[in-house]
Simulated assay, not measured.
Amino acid sequence: MEGQPHIEPRNQDQMDSEREPAEDEWKSWQRGQVRNTLHLMSAAAQWILLLACLIYLGIDSLQPSTPRSEEVLWTHIRYTGESIKGVDINLTAEVGSIQIQNGSIMITHDGLYLVSLKGRIHFPDPDELTLTLWKTGKTTGSALWEQIVQDSGNAVNLMTVLYLFEEDNITLRTSSNATIADLSFSLALLSPFICSL
């Protein structure tokens, strides 16, 4: 054994001191791996949540919207028939969401209403006739609009916006006996009044 170089045996302290930096490096690397894994899991969870939100919004946007006819209060009336002097014409709704009771249009919301009225009036008297859009409230009644018809068979035409109140009743009447032909009467709520307390 003389030809071999003499190797001193390492003492335990020297080996421990060399092993400590290696163990510290190994523990640091493991902590880094755990941290990276947690970051990866967090990013994956965020992407899944984002994807779920986008799917929800996409499905919600594909839902059919509520038709405008269900949102707006309106009515359309067609009438052909006789009217008696000073008596309300017995109106009945052809279509719409505003109720008509006993020939009167029942207003259920305060607000601006678009009113359209067209038709022809025939009357036997040589005098003129007045067609009146009448409003009856809780205690009083008043004319909202009047048109004088001078010749039998003339057309009446109204397109206006009126502010009407809840519990008003709207009717039509003539100042003399007449025959009304192809009356088209429409009423639609444009903007409801919202009371702020």
Rank of each mutant, 00 (worst) to 15 (best):
N177K: 04
P124L: 06
H6D: 14
G32Q: 11
E166G: 04
P126S: 12
L114D: 09
F193A: 09
P5W: 12
Q99D: 15
V161K: 00
T37K: 12
H39R: 15
G119I: 00
L114F: 14
H76Y: 06
S175R: 03
L114H: 12
V115D: 08
T37W: 12
T140L: 14
G111W: 00
H109V: 10
T66V: 03
W134A: 13
E166Y: 01
T140E: 10
I121L: 07
S97K: 03
I7Y: 14
I100R: 01
S175N: 11
P126Y: 13
I59T: 02
G86A: 06
F165D: 13
I84S: 10
I48P: 00
D88H: 02
I194K: 02
F123Q: 01
F165R: 02
D127W: 06
V34L: 15
G119F: 01
E8W: 11
S116G: 06
V161L: 03
P126C: 12
Q150N: 12
G81P: 06
S65Y: 05
W26A: 12
F185E: 01
W145H: 07
A93W: 00
H109G: 05
A178V: 08
S69A: 07
E128G: 12
E2P: 07
L133D: 06
T132M: 08
E23C: 06
G3F: 13
I7M: 10
L112R: 04
Q14E: 15
E166N: 04
Q99K: 08
R10Y: 08
I105A: 13
N154P: 06
M106G: 08
R10H: 10
H39K: 14
W29C: 05
D60W: 11
R78I: 08
E18K: 08
W145F: 08
R35P: 01
E146P: 03
G96W: 00
E71M: 09
D24C: 10
L62R: 12
T160K: 11
E70C: 06
I48N: 07
A181N: 10
V87R: 04
M41T: 15
T139V: 15
G32Y: 06
P21R: 00
Q101R: 07
W47L: 15
Y56A: 08
P64C: 04
Q101T: 09
T179F: 13
S196T: 09
K138E: 14
W26E: 14
I48Q: 03
W134T: 13
Q63I: 09
Q33W: 10
A143F: 07
G141I: 09
L183R: 02
A52G: 02
V95W: 08
V115S: 11
I59E: 00
L73W: 05
